[in-house]
Amino acid sequence: MNTYKIIEIKESIFSNNDRQADKLREELKNKKTFLLNLMSSPGSGKTTTVLRTIEALKDEMKIGVMEADIDSDVDASLVAKTGAKVIQLHTGGMCHLDADMTKQGLDALEADGLDLVILENVGNLVCPAEFDTGSSKNAMILSVPEGDDKPLKYPLMFSVVDVLLINKIDAMCIFDFDIEKVKERVKKLNPNIKVIPISAKTGEGFDEWIDWLRNEVKAWKE
């Protein structure tokens, strides 16, 4: 007769991903490649921000971009025009990237020798926050038209990122957007977060953002 037994596993389902992410981070550290995981809602200006960031840094470092989308390659073809190395990742309906998909993307991009790889995560403020991609740092964009209540609605996203870019500040005058309120709400969730107001369209605030990124890339290589 077969006897059933209860076997305790107590394994967090995220821990498998966390282990892969830590391994990937270590590999990237050894290869001196800085991976920035950039997250935001759809339409927040991620691609425009990426384009301007590449323009600002392309003369001083080798840059690669991974565009993760459920479908299409419109973003990748835009980025390719800047001369940066780019690859489009199709998640096939999945709403986030995990560490394994990120690693596959880096392999396909042939990221060895790059100084900076920007991962444009799927436009979504929910699940990308739950999955460590193995990135060196996490950044997110909140754009003015989305509203100043987003930190209240998506607290996890705001608590896992190192830097928050508040984009489209050139449109601030036509929206009811209280930037001080956002800062206050965000600092409550994440006291160490750096908040940088920018306009990817006009370039306002980019000096501070580029300085931050340049310093992080430099620190990563040390």
Binding site: K5, I7, E8, I9, S12
Partner: peptide
């Protein structure tokens, strides 16, 4: 916030 495999009943 957990998402865990707690246990399995098996033989």
């Amino acid at each position: 916030r957990e998402f865990m495999i707690k246990e399995i009943v098996a033989y």
